[in-house]
Design a protein around this nucleic acid. Structure first.
Lengths: 166, 166
DNA sequence: TATTGTTATACTCTATAACTATA
DNA sequence: TATAGTTATAGAGTATAACAATA
């Protein structure tokens, strides 16, 4: 198998929508391409915010999820989030070392660990949430306020269906 | 730096929208998360179609782009698509070996190569386009037909803005 | 000396499976 | 024997720079 070097970034795209419609087809009209562009743009913005969070976006995902319920076992947390259990180990290593989560032995099963978020962890979540909201608004900036809600709603419906279909 | 193993897949997500609204925040409401889920779902579907195309999605991108204009030089093509020139080398190696593109020396500059799509390449594009359209429709399946157009349109506006902002 | 295209190297992230300690 | 968590190894993709040929 070949290996590829470098990365795909946003193309120059001096092609307008009109030209696009006139030719048989252009990449910018491609749904997957557009989703990728937007997704990467958000990730790029969010990565600045999430640089404070060990494990980046996934570390944040774990942190917020762990903060919403009673302490869960490590494996349960991994399954709930669809994260491989070996990855969860590394993520929690970093989060724990930074003092944002705690691993305590489960009194009911000494093999298992219960994951809880520390005060510092909660503080980090609070600080991060606001920044992410700002990033979302900027990504959706090209849309008027009421359209943003529509877009979010449609996206929600689509991902819900996607999750079911999984 | 730590290394992470495994991958993030779609979470179980038995959480409903109502519950989501009642709690402070849930991951499914996150724009970036939703975009990622949808983008991955499309990619997963498209990857089956694109398994025939050397270089996968990027190989297809190169192929379609090269077919829309007069033969361009390798570097120009790379810059137009935002692909690193070292990656372009590997992509074209595979596409050429499979007989979908040709590299000819540019008579105006013997360092440069002009990239053109072969008859076989055009045939591959034709076959692929239809399958990708079907994949798009399936990803947007949860939306009624007229909403799909709205969604596509909004996405288009957002990516256009994203490309500008780049 | 700068540029087109190619090749080489190191690094990050991922997939998989083996390992330990408990049950 | 099976499970929770950990660690090790190999692979796929990326970034970077060095290289050859030509301008």
């Amino acid at each position: 198998m070949r290996t590829y070097h470098g990365t795909v970034t946003v193309p120059a795209a001096e092609i307008t929508v009109e030209e696009c419609a006139s030719t048989s087809r252009c990449v910018e009209a491609d749904l997957g391409f557009a989703l990728g562009v937007l997704s990467r743009r958000y990730q790029k913005m969010a990565s600045r915010v999430l640089s404070d969070v060990p494990g980046g976006a996934r570390g944040y995902l774990v942190l917020t999820s762990a903060s919403t319920q009673e302490p869960r076992r490590q494996l349960t947390l991994a399954q709930d989030l669809g994260i491989d259990r070996t990855v969860m180990t590394y993520l929690l290593d970093d989060l724990e070392q930074a003092g944002f989560v705690e691993r305590r032995p489960d009194p009911a099963d000494r093999r298992a660990r219960l994951i809880s978020v520390t005060e510092d962890g909660l503080g980090l979540i609070d600080r991060t949430v606001n920044c992410l909201d700002a990033a979302e608004d900027e990504v959706l900036g090209a849309l008027p306020a009421q359209d943003r809600t529509v877009f979010r709603d449609m996206l929600q419906r689509l991902t819900a269906a996607a999750t079911e279909a999984e």
